[in-house]
Simulated scan of single mutants.
Amino acid sequence: MIGSYRKLWPQRASAENITTQEELEKYILIELNDELTHPRVRKSKQQKLELALERIEQSDLSESEKYGLAALYKRLAAEKE
């Protein structure tokens, strides 16, 4: 999944630093919680999940990579509700 995430976000320097599944999940949670955005303009977790799933679907990833990443995003979003 780390390689798939890097392909999805090629311009993110932080994606290149991910070496473990735990780090990958941490970065996805940061994204879903919109933690890098000013609090007044943050989107909800559901909005961020929808945007991520749309990006995954429109990407050039293989179908199995898309399925795996989408499932990971959905699992993490559901666990941290």
Rank of each mutant, 00 (worst) to 15 (best):
L8Y: 06
N17E: 13
E54N: 14
R40T: 10
E22G: 00
T20L: 00
E57I: 02
G68N: 14
K48V: 06
I18A: 09
T37R: 11
R42E: 02
T20A: 01
I2A: 01
S62A: 11
L32E: 00
Q47E: 15
L72N: 00
T37G: 04
L24C: 07
L61K: 12
M1P: 04
N17P: 04
Y67C: 07
S14D: 14
Q11G: 10
A78Q: 12
I2H: 03
K74N: 02
A15Y: 00
E35Y: 05
K80W: 07
Q21I: 06
L36C: 07
K43G: 06
P10M: 11
L76E: 03
E35D: 08
D60S: 15
E25N: 13
Q58V: 02
M1W: 02
Q11Y: 13
P39Q: 03
L51Q: 15
K66Y: 06
A52I: 05
Y5M: 04
A13D: 14
I18P: 03
Q21W: 00
E65F: 04
P39T: 02
K48T: 07
E25D: 15
W9L: 14
E22H: 05
L69M: 13
T19Y: 05
S59H: 08
K66A: 09
N17L: 13
E57G: 04
R6E: 08
E22Q: 08
K43E: 13
Y27I: 01
T19A: 06
K45W: 05
S14I: 12
L24I: 10
R6V: 07
K26L: 03
E31R: 15
E16F: 04
G3E: 15
K48P: 01
L51G: 14
G68Q: 14
A15M: 09
T20K: 04
A15E: 09
Y27D: 07
K80Y: 10
Q47N: 11
A13W: 09
Y67V: 04
Y73N: 00
R6G: 04
Y67W: 08
E31K: 14
E23V: 02
Y67T: 11
